[in-house]
Every structure is written in structure tokens, then in C-alpha cells.
Amino acid sequence: MHDNVQNFAVAHLLRRPAPVETGGFVAGFDPATDSPYVNYATPFPGAEPADRDVTALIRAFRERGLRPRLEFAPDAAPAVEPALRRAGFRTEAVHDYLVCTPATLVVPANGDGPDGGLAVRAPRTDEDYRAVDTALSEAFAGEFGPSEAGAARLRRTEEQGGAVRFVRAPDGTCAGGALCSAPAEDTAELAGVGTRPVYRGRGIAAAVTAALAATTFSRGTSSVWLEYSGEGSRRVYERVGFRPRGTRLYLTLEG
């Protein structure tokens, strides 16, 4: 499963508008944004980069005015972390990831909260995509601002074979949502699970997570994986069938 997730990471970055392959790495660049969470690199499984390969990777980022940054499953390429650390890369984060399969998926009945009856929807209009983007910005405490570009990226996720799902708020906006990438290597990444603070505790995260997994499985994919940010979110994901499977490492080069 480490290689499956890492193979997915490679394929996912190769779908970026301007990917670059160099020295055992693929860097996924999107000229429409300078976000480090969009523009980053990952190694091919089993890569054994020399110092000159890491230098070339750094140069690819610097030439674009971007901070060198990587996300990967270290068990899939054990030689990569030492090479990056020799070049001065430091740990940004270490995240465990969970995997769900059709055999483990549990779809909550009537949502998963005290008021029940949560209707999980797919966005249909530009207004829907803007509402989801705005809600996720609020859910993640302004880590990224709502924007037309963000809404457009959500629409492209759907158009390119992924999925976006949300629960509508009583005022017609979005209470919470999430997205799942287009599958690659027989798996897909579920990400951006967020609920606006006022609507938390109503089972929205569990409902959209289960709906996205079910949608992805219905298209023939054998697994879905995600990372979690804390024990509270882990319990939500485990309740709908996600199980611990491995670790992903985030490294960045400052300066």
C-alpha cells in the first residue's frame, strides 16, 4: 500500500498543468498559483537520488520563484529523505494516512448527527462551487482565502474525474464539504474535509467523507486514502471505515 499511495502521488502531480520530471522526482507546477500546497514535488517509488539530482530539483523550484517542498511516503523511497536532509530540507509535518476500501466503508444512516437527514450534494452551479470554496476557507481558519481560482479548481476536480460533495446550510450556502481526486493507480485521495465552525458536531464531515468514498468506489476504484489532522478527525474517518495504513512526510527548504 505504501507504493500504491506513492504511485498515486506521482500520477497526481503529473496531471498538473506544468509538471517537471527530474532526477527521480516529479514536481507538479501550476502557473495559476504560487501556493506551496499546490506546487510541490514527490519521488518515484524506489528513487535513489544523488546530491546533484536534489540540486536540480531545487533549481526547478527557484527558477519559478517557488519554495522547494515535497510530500511523500518515506517507506516507498527510503533513500530520498537522507538526500534531501543533506541539502538542508527540514520537516514541515508528518501525517499518518488512513485507507478505506469497499469492504470497510460504512455509510452513516440519515447523516451522522443529532438532527439527521443530511443531504449530501454535488455542486452544479458556479454559485455552488464558490460556496464550497468559501466554506472550506472558513473551516480551515483562513489558511487560504476564498477565490474564483479556488472555485475553478473545485470545478476542474469534478470535470477531470474526481468528485466534490457538500452539505447545504439552511441559508442556502455551504455548511461543509470535501473533495476527492480523480483516481490513479487504483486509488484516490480524499482531501479538504472541512465544516464551518457554526455547523460542527452535526455529522457533516462523516457524511461527505462517506459519500465521496462511495462515489469513488462506484466508479471502480479499489481504495480511497486520506490524511487526518487530529484524533477527533481520525475518529470521524474511522467511524466510516478508514483504517491506519502508513505515514507521509512533508519536507521544505527555507531561504
Rank of each mutant, 00 (worst) to 15 (best):
T195Q: 07
G23D: 04
P78S: 09
L13S: 00
P183L: 06
A205W: 04
G142T: 14
I58A: 07
A122D: 15
Y237G: 01
Y199D: 07
A139P: 06
P68N: 12
A184T: 00
A77Y: 01
A87C: 03
V99M: 06
A163R: 13
C100G: 10
F217N: 10
L226C: 02
P108S: 13
A87S: 11
G116W: 09
T104A: 04
V198G: 11
A184V: 02
S223I: 08
T91I: 08
G24E: 12
E21S: 03
F166V: 02
Y129K: 10
E81M: 09
G111S: 05
T221Q: 00
F217M: 09
A56K: 13
L14E: 06
T187F: 03
Y97R: 03
P114D: 13
D126C: 08
A131G: 12
M1T: 13
T173F: 03
T221C: 05
L84Y: 04
G230S: 14
P78M: 08
S147K: 10
E127C: 07
Q160I: 07
A188P: 11
R130K: 13
A211K: 01
S218Q: 13
A93E: 15
Y129E: 11
P17M: 04
L190M: 09
R243T: 13
G203E: 06
G232L: 08
T221G: 00
G117R: 11
E63N: 05
A141P: 08
T195S: 12
P170F: 14
A206R: 12
T91K: 10
A60D: 09
N39P: 07
A207I: 02
A122P: 00
Q160T: 15
F72P: 00
P114M: 09
D133C: 14
R239P: 05
E185I: 03
D186E: 09
D30Q: 06
E81A: 15
R243M: 12
A207F: 01
A32R: 15
C180D: 02
V107T: 15
R86G: 11
G220S: 11
A47L: 11
E159A: 15
P123N: 00
A214W: 11
G177Q: 04
P146D: 09
R235V: 06
F8N: 09
T125A: 13
A188C: 10
S223V: 08
V54Q: 03
S147A: 13
V54D: 02
G162S: 03
P78G: 11
E48D: 14
R239C: 10
R16T: 14
A109C: 04
W225N: 02
V167M: 09
R243A: 14
